[in-house]
Structures are given as C-alpha cells and as structure tokens.
Design a protein around this nucleic acid. Structure first.
Length: 458
DNA sequence: TCTGGGGTCCTAGGACCC
DNA sequence: TCTGGGGTCCTAGGACCC
C-alpha cells in the first residue's frame, strides 16, 4: 500500500453495448443485449437500460429475452469494433503514464507514480481522473469510463465499481479500510459464489467481518494461497505492482453446440476446426506449446479434460489435431456432447519444426490409426443427420426474419445462426442490411459443409 | 430453448529422482 | 532392509475473472 492514491483503475461502462449504441443511433436509450443470440447463448453485456429489467452478464440469453420488453435489441458481438475502441482507449491511458496494465479489452490499471511527474495529492489526482474520463469519452465517440483512484490495485478496482456508470471515486491514503469494511465480501476480487457461500456459513458477510477472522480459519477453509490472500485483502494490505506485460500461458478454443452431438465423425471434424484455430493463433503469436488438452462437456454439463505433454513444442494445427483426436478417442461420447475444446499450454516463445514427429512414438504409447477428416459429402450428411430425428428436405432450409437471431455486420457477409429451425447455419454471400422481407435460403450439401459456426473472435 | 468463450491460478495425487 | 523427505513434472479438476 502506498502513501498516495497513485493507482488508477479504469473500466469502460457496459462496453460492448455502449459501442453498439454509439454506432447505431436507433439503439440509444433502448435496452441492448450483446452476447450469444443462438439457443445456448449467454449475455456478454447488458446496457444499463436492459439492467433495469434484471438482465445481467452471464445470464442465458433466453432468460434475458423473457425479462426484457419487446423493442430490446439482441445483438451478436462485433469484436473487431470493440478491439478498435479498446486500442483508442489504451492509447489515451498511455498518454498519462508509461505504466499501463491492460487487464481485459475494457479495463486497465495506470500507475501515476511511474512517470509524468504527477502531483499525487487527492485534489490533483481527482482532476487528472476527471480529465481522463473526458478524454476517453471524446476519443471513443462517447463511450464512458468509470475510474477508481487509490493507493493499491485492490482499492482502485473497488473504487471504480462504486459509482458506475460514468463514476469517479478517489480514496485518500488512510481511508482504505473504512471504505472496504461495510462492503459485501463478494466485492473482493477472488471471492466468487463458492467462497461467498463458505463465508456466509461462518457468518461472514462483509469485508469488515472478514478482517476479524483469524488467519488459521481462512487457511483451513481456502487453502494456503487463497486463504493468506484473503487475509491480506480484507485488511487492504495489497502491494501488487502495475505490470505492463504478462506472458501468455495457454491458447485455446472451444465451442458449445446448438444441439448435443453423438456422431463420432462429426466430433472429430469439430475437433479439427478447433485445432486449426488454436494452431493459427499460436503461429500468429509466435508461440509453440508442449501440452495438448481436450475439454469435453457432456450433455449433463459434467466437464472433463484430458491432456498429454509432448517432448517437443509445436504450433502445427495438424499435430495438435492428431493428439486431440487421440485424447478424445478414449472418452465415451455416446450420451451426447455439449461442448468441445482444444487447448495448448506449456508454451515457449519460438516455433520449432517438428520434422520427425511422425516417426516418434512416445514411450508406452501404442500408435493407433488416427481418424481422418471427412470429405465434404460425409460432413454434410453427418450434419444433416444430426438435424432432427428424421432428416427431411425442408430441414435443409433456413428462414431468416429481419432483426431476429441475425448477426448483422456492415463490413461484409453476415450469418444466420440458429434462427427459425434452430440448427442450420447459413452463410450469406451478400450484406444483410437493410432489412427486407422474410427471405428463404435453400441449403445444399456444399453450403452445409461450408457452414462453420460464426467465429466470435474474428 | 439454463448455464459462452478465453483465460489465470491453485490444489492434490502419483511418478520419479536424489 | 519395512521405510525419509524434498523437489519437480504431469494430470485432472475447480474457482474465478472479464
């Protein structure tokens, strides 16, 4: 903890929804939900207008639809637009200090003590934060930020939450525990539902209560690292520094299917697509990894992982896919798979060509023939057969109603995802705007094969 | 139409080594 | 010979964050 409030935490308010409202005048003042608009989607961001009706991040979109009035906009995310806004935002922060720690796309810490020769009195720091908020709104076209300023990351972060949206909270040095004490324990970073429940059973509701609990109990309840961490955080004892760059530890991709999958060939095909995405992102980042992990979520939401560590790091999508298939082949998938994921970890910062990988058999591993990717017709028929109990011609037709379950993207082709029939993904060749009458598209085998799910991260 | 996707960190047990 | 202790790596699972 420092002697002056020199750490800022800056957070864009409901960023995804705010960008949509900025870019589309008709959305301003209206409830906006950004997130998965398909059957199993969840809310990524609810605008403050939508929060009035109880919509929240991580809520199933189906529930948000029940809660919000007609006229609410449900939009698929446009990550490219959010990333551009994020870059503008970070550039504004960089003018303030060279020490900026980006926590996520919409959130960062700034260390005012690290450069720029700032006056760090509470009054001066308040003025700096006011100007910063105005600069961010001006640079981003009206996206507002909430700011907390304090002597530590912990209190700066909690301060920025205190008066959202468009908030500003400065906690002078010495006032930290007074501010924290009445707040619920769940306000502390690292205290989620499980820890909250454990504390509630012990009669601990506020951070003040938590600060009265002996260290021994916290260690017993939460283990060494977490217990000791909570003990310190409850006392506002936090000397974590602002870290400008952290190394990536893992790269992964996963996908929840609209309907549980049982077809092995289809599962292997999905695994291939995921491995390809991971491999491409590894290459783009100049990274290779030794451990390949497959994540499997069963129909009943039970989730398992299977991993194996190679001797040599790789960034080769084909190799990642081969190992992923091998891992999946030992898992019973007959009851239905809701989600598949592929990850690579134990990363090193260089890419090594794995010339002899096909000749190397790891000790104790029996080389099994690896299931091969299917050809186009096999893939299309697998998809068609999983559409419904009895595939019929009309199932190969998707109906699009303007504004419903549509990802509209003014930069190019759009997607219909799960509309009407709930399962068919159709790639559009042309722009979707402006909305027209109901349009119907026939889906042939080739289109089915080309129907990769929309990629939220692109 | 219950429960996304991309991450980080921690724990615990077993293998293995010294 | 009947039983050590520390350290590291690997695997699996879980809590948590945005």
């Amino acid at each position: 903890m420092r002697r002056e409030p020199s750490i800022l935490h800056v957070d864009l308010d409901a960023m995804f929804a705010a960008v949509e409202q900025r870019d589309k005048v008709s959305l301003r003042g209206r409830p906006v939900i950004v997130g998965g608009v398909a059957g199993r989607g969840v809310v990524a961001t609810a605008s403050y207008e939508a929060r009035v009706y109880g919509a929240r991040s991580a809520m199933p979109t189906s529930e948000a639809r029940r809660r919000c009035p007609s006229g609410t906009a449900f939009l698929a995310p446009r990550f490219a637009a959010y990333r551009r806004t994020s870059q503008v935002f970070m550039a504004v922060l960089a003018e303030l200090s060279p020490m900026v720690e980006q926590v996520s796309i919409d959130e960062a810490y700034v260390d005012l003590a690290a450069g720029g020769d700032h006056d760090l009195s509470p009054e001066a720091v308040t003025a700096i934060a006011r100007k910063l908020k105005a600069d961010v709104a001006a640079a981003t076209g009206g996206v507002t930020a909430s700011v907390g300023v304090a002597s530590s990351k912990l209190v700066a972060k909690i301060g920025s939450e205190l008066h959202k949206p468009d908030g500003l909270t400065v906690v002078p040095a010495g006032d930290e525990r007074t501010v924290l004490s009445p707040m619920p324990v769940g306000s502390l970073p690292g205290v989620g539902p499980a820890a909250q429940e454990r504390l509630r059973r012990a009669g601990v509701q506020t951070i003040g209560h938590l600060a009265a609990v002996e260290l021994g109990y916290l260690l017993e309840w939460f283990g060494q690292a977490h217990g000791a961490g909570l003990y310190r955080l409850a006392r506002a004892d936090d000397d974590r520094g602002v870290v400008t760059d952290r190394e990536t530890k893992s790269v992964s991709a996963e996908e929840t299917f609209d309907v549980d999958l049982t077809d092995r060939a289809r599962l292997y095909h999905e695994l291939d697509l995921l491995a390809r995405r991971v491999g491409e992102r590894l290459r783009a980042a100049g990274l290779s990894g030794r451990t390949v992990t497959v994540k499997i979520r069963h129909y009943d939401f039970t989730t398992i992982t299977r991993s194996l560590t190679r001797d040599q790091p790789t960034d080769d999508p084909q190799l990642v896919a081969d190992y992923a298939r091998r891992l999946l082949s030992d898992v019973n998938t007959s009851a239905g798979i809701r989600l598949l994921g592929v990850g690579v970890s134990t990363l090193t910062a260089y890419a090594q060509d794995d010339l002899f990988s096909s000749l190397v058999v790891p000790d104790g591993v029996v080389e099994e023939p690896v299931p091969q990717a299917q050809d186009a017709s096999a893939s299309a028929s697998a998809l068609a057969s999983s559409l419904a109990p009895s595939p019929s011609p009309e199932l190969a037709t998707a109906t699009w109603r303007p504004g419903q379950d549509v990802r509209h993207d003014e930069y190019g082709a759009g997607w219909v995802w799960g509309s009407g029939l709930g399962r068919v993904t159709v790639r559009f060749e042309g722009p979707l705007t402006p909305p027209g009458p109901v349009r119907t598209f026939a889906v042939d085998d080739a289109a089915l094969h080309a129907a990769d799910p929309p990629d939220w991260t692109s």
